[in-house]
């Protein structure tokens, strides 16, 4: 709660939180909020590429679909992609980091070297290659992103675990006979949680952005999904005439990623109080 209060006292972070919460609400109620929910898959050729008007505040796209509706409907896929990719990456990265940080020996060493291998290639290139290899599509893109993002969690958790392993209270716990899983799960993990949380929040923004690039390059979401990156990609042929076509999905990406990044930034400040003391 104190953390939340700190967060809210920081206007920029509060803005981030507001953006993220707003997106989550929109994602949850998308079908009810969208003026034309069936435009997720419908095509209305006679009203294609209409500029913004009272009827279509964001204009219509190349198949005559309402862009506002599609931006609203696309929020859900963006949030789902971000959350599931980050969760999957955490599921791999956190245990790897915990194990490798706690134990010495060749297994830990190998795990961290594997992490290095993954970190040695820029995520986008790796995700692109992976995405293309396993029949392109949103699921593939998500798997590819999770497979390229887990090393960041592994690194973060590894560092935290290494730091805590030498800590006095951990020695004490081991001394009174606490089991390793118990120490790791109940004591080390909670202490690493703030770092993980910050990583995760930043990761959400990063994921949305990379998924959009993948969609843009044709390795992400499949049409007719109202995916934002895909919409920008589809809009390319109609530029600069239909300026509204890429603009609104692009802004949606910007706002949501901004929200996650601002929130992450705020959380980082909360987690690292030294920077807050100031003045």
């Amino acid at each position: 709660m104190t953390a939340l209060r700190h967060l809210l006292r920081d206007p920029v972070a509060a803005l981030g939180l507001a953006l993220v919460l707003f997106a989550i609400v929109v994602a949850l109620f998308a079908p009810w909020l969208a003026p034309y929910p069936e435009d997720a898959f419908e095509s209305r050729l006679l009203q294609r590429l209409k500029p913004p008007s009272a009827e279509f505040p964001f204009g219509t796209d190349n198949l005559g679909r309402d862009i506002l509706s599609r931006v609203i409907l696309g929020t859900r896929s963006a949030v789902v992609v971000a959350v599931s990719v980050v969760l999957a990456a955490m599921l791999i990265g956190v245990p790897v980091g915990l194990w490798a940080g706690w134990r010495e020996g060749w297994v830990s060493e190998t795990l961290m070297r594997v992490t290095d291998v993954f970190l040695a290639v820029p995520q986008l290139i790796l995700a692109l290659a992976l995405g293309q290899l396993m029949a392109p599509g949103l699921t593939t893109a998500m798997v590819a992103l999770a497979l390229t993002y887990w090393p960041f969690f592994a690194r973060t958790v590894h560092a935290e675990t290494r730091r805590l392993r030498g800590a006095l209270f951990v020695d004490a716990l081991a001394g009174i006979g606490a089991s390793t899983p118990r120490i790791l799960l109940l004591h080390v993990l909670p202490n690493a949680a703030p770092a993980i949380l910050v990583r995760a929040t930043i990761g959400m923004g990063f994921t949305i952005l990379t998924a959009a690039i993948l969609g843009f390059l044709g390795v992400g979401a499949a049409p007719p999904s109202p995916d934002w990156g895909l919409a920008v990609a589809e809009a390319r042929q109609h530029l600069p005439e239909a300026w509204w076509f890429p603009t609104f999905p692009g802004l949606a990406i910007l706002l949501l990623v901004l929200g996650f990044n601002l929130l992450g930034d705020g959380l980082r400040d909360v987690a690292d109080p030294r920077l807050r003391r100031g003045r």
């Binding site: 898959f41 095509s43 392109p136 044709g218 499949a222």
Partner: peptide
């Protein structure tokens, strides 16, 4: 997927097939 027309044709077809009770899934490929 790099040829926009193939994607548009599939999307339009998908919407119309839905009206005759057939569901079409678009798979982007090269």
């Amino acid at each position: 997927s790099e040829l926009e027309q193939t994607v548009q044709a599939a999307q339009m077809f998908q919407a119309d097939l839905r009206r005759v009770g057939v569901s079409l899934k678009i798979v982007p490929s090269t």
